[in-house]
Every structure is written in structure tokens, then in C-alpha cells.
Design a protein around this nucleic acid. Sequence first.
DNA 1: TTGTGATCATCT
DNA 2: AGATGATCACAA
Length: 215
Amino acid sequence: MGRARHIAGRTLGELARGVGMVAPPDLRRHKGWVGQLLEAALGSTAGSRKGPDFSQLGIELKTIPVDLSGLPRESTFLTVLTPAELVSVEFERSAVMAKLRKVLWLPIQADPAIPLPSRRIGNPHLWSPTPAEEARIRADWELFARWVADGQLDAISAHQGEVLQVRPKARDAKALRLSPDPDGGASMMLPRGFYLRASFTKEILARYYRLPSPP
DNA sequence: TTGTGATCATCT
DNA sequence: AGATGATCACAA
């Protein structure tokens, strides 16, 4: 937290210089660059390994792109949806809950008008779901678990879920994998991932930062 | 090839 | 405007 508070207010360009990284012209072909920069700056070595970014602390680091009001611009990717895990494990032991048990939110200016190296880092917020928040996440998760158990993964759309959603997570729409189908067998389907809706992270951040909420 | 880091590009 | 479905880079 000391490190995170210390970099609050600095620009991505300054931070990059400090860790020997170079800001790309834009994020179109470097969508994960900001997240990777902050990992390097805060000393996370988790890389693409499973588990929390700071394994000893059990803390998951999430940069969150915010607009001029400080409100989230995008949903937040959590983890891939593994059908076998989803139907065999309790919510408390799920990959989703493992990610959400303790999250360090790091707001990053993401207004397109601001050049990438000039964008500033905000104050960190260490968050764990309240019992009420956890109940909402669990209700969505259990809904998805039932659909997958019925072989209906392919029928799930991003419209479902109040706070959690299931969306494609793949190289592209042609990268298919075997998933349980309605016949009890397996068919090639588009891989999915779990995401937190921007409306939900908006609630979380607005409470902590006292940001404007919708009228 | 898969998981982690996400944002992009359209559609409604 | 906001959200959905698609997409991009890199490490292991």
C-alpha cells in the first residue's frame, strides 16, 4: 500500500521510465500495457501465473480505466471460465471468488484526449466484497453454473448477470475449444471469461472516492 | 496453447 | 452513451 500510495499522482510516462518500459503510441495493439506497467512498478512477479498478483498477501491488482469524473470506462476481466470447475466447485472455492477476495483497485486516467504517457495514476483502494456484494456475485455465478451444467454455455450472453457477466475471452472468434454440450457430450465453443460489469465497479469506486453517481 | 493483462469496434 | 461481442500482446 505504501508503494501504491507513493505512485499516486504520477504519470504513466514517469512510471515507465522508472522501470525501463516505453509507452506505445496507443493501446490498440498493447491492451494490457498499463496493467503490466503497474505490476512492474509495484513489484508483482506473478506474470501470467494463476493466483493473486501478490501471492503472499493474497492481493489481486486491478488497474481500472476511469473517465474525467473518475468513473470506470470498462468492465473488469476476472478469469477464464472453466466449465469443469464451474460445475464441480462451490462458489467459495471458485476462481472468481479467489480473484475477488482482496483487490487493490488502481484508477488510471483513460480519457482518450490525454496522451498515454501523460495519464495519471489515482489513489489505491484496497477492497473486499461486503457480504451483500458477495451475495450478488454469488447469485450470478450460480446462475452461470446452472447453465453450464445444462450444457448451455454457448447460450449464455453478456446480458445475463447483475454484477458478473460471461463474455468471450479468446484470441478471436475462431479460436474454439471443447465444452460440455446439451447432449452430454462436448462440442467446439468460443472460450468465455468472467467480467465485473462497469456498473458494479462504479458502485465500489463511487462509495470509496465519493464520486458522482447517476441522478 | 493457455491464462493474464486488458481495450477495441460496433451495435443497440 | 452504454454495453456487447471481438480482439491484441506477452509469459510460461
